[in-house]
Design a protein around this nucleic acid. Structure first.
Lengths: 341, 341
DNA sequence: CTGAAAGCGCTTACAG
DNA sequence: CTGAAAGCGCTTACAG
């Protein structure tokens, strides 16, 4: 019922080898037979099976995006991942690769990689000393890590300049006269994306001659709800803060909502900077000042880097840093009341 | 290098047939040999290849979600699809199926289905008289249509009760005293999700004894930008409207932003109802009154329905209608100025 | 320029 | 209870 290479061969009166040759542009086939075969393929709407092909070739034209360790809510809710995957999908499109989406939970079950003979992996935000990281390396297939800051040499990586992002956001707030700037983040760590941004925050502070005050750093604020709860914590700070830098836009949205409910106005009472520039920041009220990273593009770059590896093309750069940019919008403003401490 | 069934067989001192039998629980194998084989499989971390298996069996444990005809922006931007795909992924997880994500553009290229021998399809929001629809049917593989309102018998479908949704949203606004309610939608059609909601809108109007006024129906308002532009159109209406029902939450967000920029307050000047209840509606300012449909669940249901078909289980219902629910939040309020026309 | 044949890693009757 | 063999749909040397 399904039409195979045999059917084409029979109809064209040639061997399957010849059909295979015109399919792949290999071997020598007279233009005449080639034409005839191509016509029949067209007519019959024949598409070679990657299954059979893959069994021989060890390639399947399938890559997988792995998003690890996300709680149920965080996965669907963060447009970040969505845009990322879209970018990856886009980046594979013209090369006839398809992308499988796989969320890896607590367990490190990567068996689907072998099972489906996936050609390559794009892994998002993983820790270099996690078991998962080792398991991925053990797979020994082309892999690109995103947002992972892995120090090991020979690893392909794509990330944004997170340190710069942290620096720019803080600097912007400082330039508006704020000198007590709360940093709302997901989890304090000594590596990774958020750590880099923290370094940027510290750098800007240092340049301004301000001390780094750990009381101003709040964890568990990466999600929408987390940001929401941070509002309270900010308002009860012993020494008042007039600005907050939230390391994700969804966290910033939560924070602004929380502040709003407590009667604090943004940016009049408190300025807020987000991070990511997800698609709706411009439509928030007030529109959100944030650090823009081109997530979609990052996804495409990762796909490009991965496919190049898979296709055995020479790939010069092993670590790509994409730029970030400060987008000033309406959620930040000059600090009004000065020196009324 | 990659370990195969042969390696296992050799190590266990049995034939590959026997290994295959314990793998699939078929045939008769002594518990003793079975145990030994299982242990070796475990030790060697062997995972059978779906490629080889699929070549024989004609199944690949792979399904594909097809999201047709979306402009670049609409795809990444609408959390709706994201939540949907998450639901599908979730619904396939425990059955060791994986999901491929494929955006089908202008062209109706479905060749990846044959190429990868995809076991089944979940298709979102497709028109029954599109070429794509026919092409999908011609594939003759298990398929579940979501949000598609296809009249043809024998088609598996999952949708929400869109007519009820349209009715509830309108009714809510009516109950607050609004009698000129703008309906902001993507595209006016005589079928599909939005059409059903329109029917609900009309029904509520009719029950309230109000005439259906086409001036109040605005197209091209399904996206964030579209909603934003609708704001202007609403304010220049010859007869003032005091409420708007936008058939997507992102459109509603755009509309509210637009109104805000024109100095109109929500809900004081104009009440706004959205549709979908995407994840951030509660965090908008004001929080959005909307029609909730459980998108994640819809994805899971579709996956369940599809896998049942693939596995040849008896599937009673062919068309599943999921409920919708009105979520009253802060973007709607009683109409204040009465009769000042 | 073209074809016969082996082989990729599995499953499935069929023998025994 | 276990194994030999054919076959799934392709590709790839190797002959000719």
């Amino acid at each position: 019922m399904k039409i195979t290479i045999k059917d084409i061969a029979k109809e064209a009166g040639v061997s399957v080898a010849t059909v295979s040759n015109v399919l792949n542009g290999t071997g020598r086939v007279s233009e005449e037979t080639a034409k005839r075969i191509r016509r029949i393929i067209e007519e019959r709407n024949y598409v070679p099976s990657t299954l059979a092909r893959g069994l021989k070739n060890k390639n399947t034209q399938l890559i997988s995006v792995i998003v690890p360790y996300l709680k149920k809510g965080d996965f669907e809710e963060n447009p970040f991942f969505w845009q990322l995957v879209s970018g990856v999908e886009m980046g594979t499109k013209d090369q006839a690769f398809n992308v499988m989406l796989t969320r890896v939970d607590r367990d490190d079950d990567l068996s689907f990689v072998k099972r489906h003979n996936v050609d390559g992996l794009i892994v998002v935000g993983i820790n270099a000393d996690s078991a998962l990281y080792q398991n991925i390396l053990d797979l020994k297939i082309p892999t690109v890590f995103m947002d992972s800051y892995i120090e090991q040499p020979g690893i392909y990586q794509v990330h944004n300049d997170d340190l710069l992002g942290g620096y720019l956001g803080t600097k912007h707030l400082l330039s508006q006269g704020h000198d007590r700037i709360v940093l709302v983040m997901g989890r304090l760590a000594d590596r990774g994306v958020e750590y880099q941004r923290l370094l940027g925050y510290k750098k800007a502070l240092a340049e301004a001659g301000l001390a780094y005050d750990t009381h101003l750093v709040m964890e568990n604020g990466g999600s929408m709800l987390g940001g929401y709860h941070a509002a309270q914590r900010i308002t009860v700070l012993p020494e008042k803060a007039t600005a907050a830098f939230v390391l994700s836009d969804i966290g910033a949205m939560g924070l602004i909502k929380g502040l709003n409910e407590m009667g604090k106005k943004v940016p009049e009472d408190i300025s807020v900077v987000g991070y990511d520039d997800i698609f709706y920041t411009e439509y928030m009220i007030p529109s959100l000042t944030t650090i823009r990273q081109d997530i979609f593009k990052k996804g495409m770059m990762a796909a490009g880097l991965l496919l190049a590896q898979i296709n055995g093309e020479p790939v010069p750069e092993q670590s790509i840093f994409l730029p970030v940019e400060l987008k000033v919008r309406a959620s930040t403003a000059k600090r009004l009341e000065k020196g009324c401490e």
